[in-house]
């Protein structure tokens, strides 16, 4: 059954750069997805609550504060602890050299600056498809 993808978009921590996340929200909406937009200043706990209440298929985080190496793995861990087997996708200012560490920490996809609309949509679709193939409940 081809369900409409429901994705949570949020920014963790204090960083207030929301230009990118707003553009991504529109890109995903225009690709037919339902975007649950949490916006700025979210905590991992708040995102977990939203993910379970909204039965979200994925969590997208936008990061511009160089805190991705601490915050993204924390998000993955919080979701796993809540037994939520959904992919975490991050975008923003992420140096290439950090990609591997993020993937190792369980981040499903990393979108750097300048990723095209198609790349963003594909990354979400593939991450969701992979996760449901991977035996999610």
């Amino acid at each position: 059954m081809q369900d409409r993808i429901r994705i949570i978009l949020a920014k963790l921590g204090l960083d207030g750069h929301d230009r990118g996340i707003k553009v991504v929200a529109r890109i995903l909406r225009d690709a037919g997805m339902e975007v649950i937009y949490l916006g700025l200043r979210q905590t991992t706990a708040g995102i977990v609550t939203a993910a379970l209440e909204e039965d979200a298929d994925a969590v997208g985080l936008s990061m511009h504060n160089a805190g991705h190496l601490t915050l993204a793995p924390a998000m993955v861990k919080a979701l796993r602890e809540a037994d939520l087997n959904i992919p975490v996708i991050i975008g923003g200012i992420i140096p290439d050299e950090d990609r591997e560490r993020l993937t190792e920490a369980g981040v499903a996809a990393v979108l750097g600056p300048g990723a095209s609309a198609e790349e963003v949509v594909q990354a979400v679709r593939q991450a969701v498809a992979r996760q449901s193939d991977g035996g999610a409940s």
Partner: peptide
Amino acid sequence: GRDSDSPWSLGEVGRA
């Protein structure tokens, strides 16, 4: 307006 010891500040103290 957050102090360095606030949970919100983790990873951001003295960075930018």
